[in-house]
Amino acid sequence: MTRRGFTLVELVVVIGLSGLIFVVVSGLTVSLLTVGTKNRHQQTLEQARDDVTSDISNIVKWREGILAWDNNRLQVGDVVYEKSGDRFLKNGVSLLGENVVVTEMGIENYSALEDYPSLIVGLKIESRVLPQVKDEIKLVVSRRKTTIETDL
């Protein structure tokens, strides 16, 4: 028996398999691209978290001067942190960059000492470009005592 070309069944099977492979590969490609973009924005938020944590920690621990706060503002000496709209400012300048949005801010004090607060600073942040990428900053920092009391 001589055969030329393919049978209908062979063609249907090949088309079916090709379709299956296309669906799997395109699904994987899309999810890889999405994960890549998500990771990049997640890294931006992590960087923002590290920057804020280290900045506020150092200032609260060691900066001299008045220490005052409410839910959207923290003042330590001549340094003022505040949530203004969806941005987080340090002395009027954005601390987190343009692509990070601050959705919530809150400060609580867990110290029995008036002069040496132990603050819990909470910030909820998200990516401006990809709002489903979110992060939460919870920073605990106690003001340091830098003067030695002596009876001499």
């Binding site: 867990y110 919870k138 605990v140």
Partner: peptide
């Protein structure tokens, strides 16, 4: 690491108090 940091800050404040 965040839990560790919280413990250090809390302990410092407790000893100061």
């Amino acid at each position: 690491a965040a839990i560790l940091q919280e413990g250090m800050e809390a302990t410092y404040n407790v000893f100061l108090s």
